[in-house]
Amino acid sequence: MKITKKVMEGNVRAASRLIRNLEDDIPEARSTIKHIFPHTGKAHVIGVTGSPGAGKSTLIDSVIKMYRERNRTVGVLLVDPTSPFTGGAILGDRVRMQRHTEDTGVFVRSLATRGALGGLSKAVGDAIHVLDAMGKDIIIVETVGTGQQEVEIINHAHTILVVLVPGMGDDIQAIKAGILEIADVFVINKADRDGTGKLYRELMNMLNMVKDFPGGWRPPIIRIENAFEPGPFGKSVGELFSKITEHYHNLIENDLLGSRIRRKRLMELNEALRAYILEPLMKKLVETGEMERMVDKLMRREADPYTLAEGVTKKYLNGTP
């Protein structure tokens, strides 16, 4: 297929249009992915997550620079939220990465969440495949500014950076489930602010309670300060950069990369099954008016949701599952 060939040659227009079609859920885009899929799996995928304003985009900008100095090509996906009211979005992350815009070794693409809840967009998984097939060595995915539980990125990234800033709450926050559990590398950004020592100790305490780290990888905590002084800032970013690289090697040496990729494959299969089985069925129920009639029954308390769902499986799925 022509478009597959273009994407694999690294054509930016073709790749960007394909990502657009994936976001818009155009069926042809799905079949292009079928052709591209066998050519993926070469890139190191890095996820960057953390609260709004923590400095994710600015850090990514500096990390891109480190990769470019080593002649590695980089693809970047930046996710920002869609308005629940108008469906519109302001995608403003690339403002921080202007200096790479004209570098043909860097491809930056912004995506809106379009209602997805995990901190990413539904198209991110396939967009990663597109960048991978283009031959990008490194793929960086920035999630929306996250709260506590937008952890969808674990299904996509090999290495996850959680970017924190001091002053976000007491030590109970550090023992909660969710985002702090998914970090491979912690970054305390804006570490020249008050509260850095406290946050550092809380993270250390949290990590001290873990008995067994897979592959022996204890997530390092990198403090980054002086974003406006190139010398010290460059040094901390350099430290971050080497930890990212070390983590990837650790995954490979300990045979852990496979299990992360397997997690993504499982998720992709789940998504595909949903798209091919559940979504057409739901669409049919809406089109035939059955959905509304079932809601009417619920309103009159003539049936409950479970009985109705059983009825649907009997009618359309031969009673299974």
């Binding site: 930016v12 249009r17 815009t101 004209e102």
Partner: peptide, 30 residues
């Protein structure tokens, strides 16, 4: 902001750009 409220996806790229940067970003963002 007004385009966002109209339901568009707005790529905001800020100030001080060269025409080359504008064109490159427009193509990357389709």
């Amino acid at each position: 902001r007004c385009f966002r409220d109209a339901g568009y996806e707005v790529i905001y790229t800020g100030c001080h750009q060269t025409p080359e940067q504008v064109a490159a970003a427009a193509i990357q963002e389709d």
